[in-house]
Amino acid sequence: MSVVFAGVCSHAPGITGRADRADPAVRDAFYAKLDEMRQRLEASRPDALIVVAAEHFANFFMNNMPAYCMGMAESYEGPIEDEKWLGIERTRVPGNAGLSRRIIEAMLHDIDLAYAEEWKFDHGIMVPLHFLTPRYDLPVIPVNINCQGPPLTPLARAYEFGRALRRACDAQPERIAIVGTGGISHWPATPNSGVINEEWDREFLRRFLANDREALISYTDAETFRDAGQGGFEIRTFIAIAGATEGKTGELLFYAPIPIFAVGCTVATMAV
């Protein structure tokens, strides 16, 4: 079959962990749009969900840091964080090792992708799953793009990764959904936590929704760090989704800065 759904959403741990401290009106509007994304995802009748995430030193560390890695396990466990801290109970999430393997084999023609047969999900994947597959009944295939420990993969390569992912998925018989999850501008877990550059976010989203490759890959990391914080490096996940939906445009379901969640909360879908 091919890719039947594509979208992006935020994953900050505060979204679930500090839920009771946000303005209820904005929080509930955000949750409602995440639920709309869930409904659209379900309506696409996917056999598997690939989550292109930016993890935060849960499985990968500077002793052996892949630029790109895909999970290849029958199941995964998460969250790795304290359950109370994150507000999500620990659970086992089904995978699909065979499909992972076929996608990895196909992608290796284009991208030097690492794989992992063991992977514990952190908030970067668990927060999206909490809203998008709340019964944890859809097989998930995790992808990590290193957005934490520089040197980082260039943005043009992140777009290329998305293209390669699309080619690999289109060659499989399964119906596949792809969700990217990351920033946009934020300074998580630093004294600047809660600062959000809404203007920068809206311009980035404009480029993303238009799938304007040249504009998307034109940011330097120095500019991103200055204007969007180290959390802004996670735009790589969005750019990968743009690469996977090249030639198509997106629809913004929600954007609002929610400082106690430490990020401009975003929900968007891309045409496939």
């Binding site: 009771d20 401290r21 300074w187 630093t190 600047n192 809660g194 600062v195 180290q230 400082p259 106690i260």
Partner: peptide, 21 residues
Amino acid sequence: GLYTLLEDREQTWRPDLHGNR
């Protein structure tokens, strides 16, 4: 590390106005 380049940002958010758990 990375944060040597971090500049102080103006806090647009007042934690004290949002409760303290």
